[in-house]
Amino acid sequence: MKYKSVTILMADDDPDDRLLTEDALKEARLANEIRFVENGEELLQYLRHQGKFADKTLHPRPGIILLDLNMPKMDGREALQLIKSDPDLRRIPVIIMTTSKADQDILKSYDLGANSYVTKPVTFDELVEVVRGFGKYWFEIVALPD
């Protein structure tokens, strides 16, 4: 039951990546609902139910956040910092999912409190594997806060 209830919120400005991730979720047979925002600003608005995300039933609080680092307006680093310094939001696990393999991005992300760091896979099959992997880990093995 708990498995079903976890909503994934993905913050990524790239529509292709959003589409592919959604596809990969299906391919991995994860029945989780996934919602999308396109930048850090929207992410924070969603989490705080502000503006167009005011409706809590249409925009349920996510159990996990997939966060891209490089986005317009507010990038993932800043959003991560804001989430992790917000006592209400800091418990939501944040998985960084980005193309960057740079050491400094990885270190900075963990320093800011990221829970995982994944480099976007090259092929679709690899993406499915990654999604399946973190689905198993985050939704089956790990106990998430309600």
Binding site: D16, L20, D23, T99, K120, V122, T123, F124, L127
Partner: peptide, 10 residues
């Protein structure tokens, strides 16, 4: 390129 490859795979 990653996209071309991914959608090609799809």
């Amino acid at each position: 390129l990653r996209k071309v490859q991914a959608f090609g795979d799809r």
